[in-house]
Design a protein around this nucleic acid. Structure first.
Lengths: 162, 162
DNA sequence: CAAAACAATGTTATAATGTATCAAATTTTA
DNA sequence: TAAAATTTGATACATTATAACATTGTTTTG
């Protein structure tokens, strides 16, 4: 077991242009299905968020929007983010006050991330074992779960130069 | 299995005066052991945090400190909080920008909470199964864990008036 | 199509949370 | 006790987020 191969980090060494355009494509489908309007501003914010796999602060997005043409005000960004969060297209990383594109928007899931403190990458994981362990524990307390914030910070494989 | 009894929520219907004084007592011991100085301000902030099991915002603490005597400035509170966090005496609840007393300060553990969205209670849990599932998953990605933020929000047993 | 209703955006101001910096006071160490 | 280190005070400011209301755009309905 010592030499077991690890799962490659999915958001490293990949065709990010495709990754990003797929995400936008998925977003369009989801919004259409939900009868929600992915307006130009909202789509632009989503694009900006998807420029990398690193969570982006609202004011970073704001500044980037400003570069486009005329400067925007905070509510513009926060409203777009609220929309994208409601549609499950982005996640909020509470420990960083930042936002990152959802890699699993096509199906229901809870928010679970590995966050590298060095390169900043946010790896969205889907770990039924974690979800199950949490559900079991909540059950013991008679606690009814609405929402989960699972943010594991540390060093991703690429950033462990011991 | 349908009628299984749930674990009572430990921070409900308990002698909170004792709960709180125990926490302060524990804090004194830990600080002494760590050769860290639990100064009057720091102890006062810890007391204020322990007035309930609900996470408290830094500015709430600030206002309470102000009621004591002369008003304090934000850095006073944030410095005390930094100290208490470093000593493992309080936890930060990232999803609420708030702070709560640590119920498990006597031994090493990660931060795992059930957070009631109705009454606001923060139930600190210790679930090896969750920790293990997370460790296993991180391993798969070759990710080295530093820190975990596990915040489960929902309704505690007392607040489920279906 | 026109008007009404609704949804989205613009704009201004402000609230809430958190930090940088340097000076003064206190405690510890030598 | 003097020097060094730590803690606290105080001021200013940075960052993150929202309230409120006007305007524009889109959809619905008569």
């Amino acid at each position: 077991m010592a030499n077991q191969k690890t799962t490659p980090i999915p958001c490293r060494d990949h065709d990010h242009d495709k990754c990003m355009s797929d995400a936008i494509q998925r977003a369009r489908q989801i919004c259409q299905a939900n009868n929600a309007r992915l307006t130009p501003i909202r789509e632009r914010v989503l694009e900006l968020i998807w420029q990398s796999h690193n969570p982006l602060g609202a004011y970073d997005i704001l500044a980037m929007l400003g570069n486009d043409g005329k400067p925007a005000a905070p509510p513009t960004v926060y409203r777009a983010l609220d929309f994208l969060l409601a549609q499950g297209l982005v996640h909020r990383i509470a420990s960083q006050n930042a936002f990152v594109g959802c890699s699993l928007s096509s199906h229901p899931h809870v928010s679970q991330f590995l966050l590298c403190r060095d390169c900043g990458v946010a790896i969205e994981i889907e770990a039924p074992a974690i979800t199950k362990a949490i559900a079991h524990n909540a059950d013991q307390y008679g606690f009814r779960i609405d929402n989960e914030t699972i943010e594991i910070s540390g060093l991703c494989q690429c950033c462990q130069h011991d």
